[in-house]
């Protein structure tokens, strides 16, 4: 298995016990510091590289970022944000369905026009990422739309109960936090829970 290899740290060399013990300690701690130093340098280098390329690492730009630094009209970018409630307009051009909706990040909104069938999870109040080109002003032509879902999970029955009782409209943002879910669901079927 591990044979004493020719690294110089032979455990079996005939030396007085004291100096061999001290040399093994120093050599081992030196190796440890070497490993830590190399790891540290590597970490710094990686951090610098990631920082330099951070603009390419982002998967999408928010509407306010696009308006602040508008990209060239022939550059394909990704636009991400929430679909504004009430902004979805469906129409038909020949055989292809046309969808137009507004995407917002809370500060600015951009109109998106997409030809094709929207993904299953698409709905108003949901986040999307649209791939396409920015045509200036507030117009974005999308060639692909991906639905983005957030990290909140809620059982279907609980969501239905909350919507029925009027405590939450999914078109206007995230569902309430899970901590209050149990009490709200209980209150939704009975009386109100004063949230």
């Amino acid at each position: 298995m591990t044979v004493p290899s020719s690294t110089g740290t032979s455990r079996h060399s005939p030396e007085p016990q004291g100096s061999r013990h001290k040399r093994r300690m120093t050599r081992k701690s030196r190796r440890l510091w070497l490993v830590l130093a190399c790891l540290g340098c590597f970490a710094v280098a990686t951090g610098l590289v990631l920082n330099a390329f951070s603009s390419s690492i982002v998967f999408f730009m928010a509407p306010s970022q696009v308006l602040k630094a508008p990209p060239a009209s022939d550059r394909v970018i990704r636009l991400g944000g929430m679909v504004v409630a009430g902004s979805l307009r469906r129409s038909l051009e020949g055989q292809t369905p046309i969808n137009q909706f507004e995407v917002t990040d809370g500060q600015a909104a951009i109109d998106v026009r997409y030809e094709g069938i929207l993904p299953d999870l698409f709905r108003e109040g949901q986040s999307v990422v649209a791939l396409g080109t920015y045509r200036g002003g507030s117009a974005f032509i999308a060639s692909e739309v991906l639905a983005k879902h957030d990290e909140t999970y809620m059982p279907k029955e609980v969501a239905a109960a909350l919507q029925r009782s009027g405590k939450w409209d999914p078109r206007f943002g995230k569902p309430p936090s899970s901590e209050s879910l149990n009490s709200m669901a209980r209150g939704a079927t009975g009386g109100s829970n004063g949230r």
Binding site: G80, E151, Y153, P155, V158, S178, E179, N182
Partner: peptide, 24 residues
């Protein structure tokens, strides 16, 4: 958390309550 990603943020972290009900 550092970059805009399609993948959603972590639901279970050390800093906030889990965004998942106990039934899940």
């Amino acid at each position: 958390t550092w970059w805009n990603t399609l993948h959603q943020p972590d639901s279970i972290t050390l800093t906030h309550a889990p965004t998942m009900p106990s039934s899940m």
